[in-house]
Write a protein that binds this DNA or RNA. Structure first.
Lengths: 215, 215
DNA sequence: CGAGTAATTATGCAAGTGTATAATTTCTCC
DNA sequence: GGAGAAATTATACACTTGCATAATTACTCG
């Protein structure tokens, strides 16, 4: 029979690290980075605090690992839907906007995490690098989608113009993402994505609505 | 002769409160709410920590006062330029977009403060109320400007449509504000305002550029 | 000018913080 | 099944935190 009285179970390093990182993200979202105490994280992950030191040489290191985990999850959730569409560039652009403005990307917890990490991001060089790389990746990807969709529509744009369009569309998406997460009850389901598509359409002159109706 | 050796100077309650609030905002922007310690704030304001308790019954109360101070300053900076224009509605809308996307509204410190306060805002009812009131005020004002400008142009919009336009324009402004503050070196001076006007123009169908050139 | 009063400083305390180290427990492998 | 090693817990420490209270200091007003 299994010994129910055993005091703990040994887990693989990967599983434990993952559990600790998830617990960290929960607490950072709830109470900020400084509010995510080592003891609180350990309790949330159902271990004792000493174990954290066994897998991460400091709280700082755990925070950095949690941040990179979150950023990776966010970009994956955003890019996967667009990458999965193998139709026209316009279809991929539409899928990208939709994915950016629906759960799980739009979520109070994501905004809370983004806000909680911001201070550290601006001070820690490693986190700053991760942040800038993610932002650039996101915007370049969007710029590529817009460029392809415009060419497809027979009216290609010059690089300077493309840059502006990407910044503007990125801003709409970010702004809607922010508002949707900060005031979850202020918008009906799908409303943010609707407004996002309409706005990107207005800014670029592309017709994202007919594309959205195809699905 | 003045006694240079006197250990402190008595100030009016208003001056001291203001000084403490400003010191608090500095530290909150730098280190987050929990990182803004009572001792740190006192040092920054050149007083001893006991004095804080004399003017604010708790750190919580000081934080709330600092948040409301900041929100008031932000809205004032944003609304004053638009209110000062007594020309067409289009001119006021243009001034509003410009003010929202140039310093001192666009500023790394403002974004840092916004992010640092977010956690508390979502948990403390009083701060939450302030936040929602400010957001609603901002968006309603923008919606009013858009409505007036559209009527002026001879193509008034229905309420539902107006709501969507206001949300979209608000999102562009917020998104650009965010990006400008989070990556201050990524944009040339005036670039954000340019893109903001173009985007609002594209979304609403109004011509903000000819309006901007008049000044 | 001198006493009273309020502003300000000085000091102390209990709880919470990250981290270091020692003591246990579980699991693997021969 | 039992020794060895690694995972996990247990305990301790120095430091910081917000808050309370007592001791000073500066200014006001008769």
């Amino acid at each position: 029979m299994t010994d129910e009285r055993r005091k703990f179970k040994r887990e693989s390093a990967e599983a434990r690290k993952e559990a600790l990182i998830l617990a960290t993200l929960e607490l950072v979202a709830e109470n900020g980075v400084r509010g995510a105490t080592v003891r609180g994280i350990a309790e949330r992950a159902d271990v004792t605090q000493g174990l954290i030191r066994h897998y991460f040489s400091s709280k700082e290191e755990l925070i950095i690992a949690a941040y990179e985990h979150h950023m990776t999850a966010m970009t994956d959730q955003t890019f996967a839907p667009a990458a999965g569409v193998d139709g026209t560039a316009l279809a991929r652009l539409t899928a990208f906007v939709n994915a950016s403005l629906t759960p799980p990307v739009v979520d109070p917890r994501s905004i809370a995490l983004w806000a909680s990490f911001l201070n550290k991001v601006q001070q820690d060089p490693q986190m700053k690098a991760t942040h800038e790389r993610t932002y650039a990746y996101f915007r370049d990807f969007l710029e590529g989608l817009i460029a392809a969709a415009l060419e497809e529509a027979g009216r290609p744009a010059a690089p300077a113009r493309l840059r502006q369009l990407a910044i503007a569309c990125n801003a709409v998406i970010d702004g809607l993402w922010l508002e949707g997460g900060a005031l979850p009850d202020a918008f009906a389901p799908g409303e943010l994505a609707d407004i996002g598509r309409q706005s990107v359409a207005a800014i670029t002159g592309l017709n994202l609505e007919q594309e959205a109706e195809k699905t």
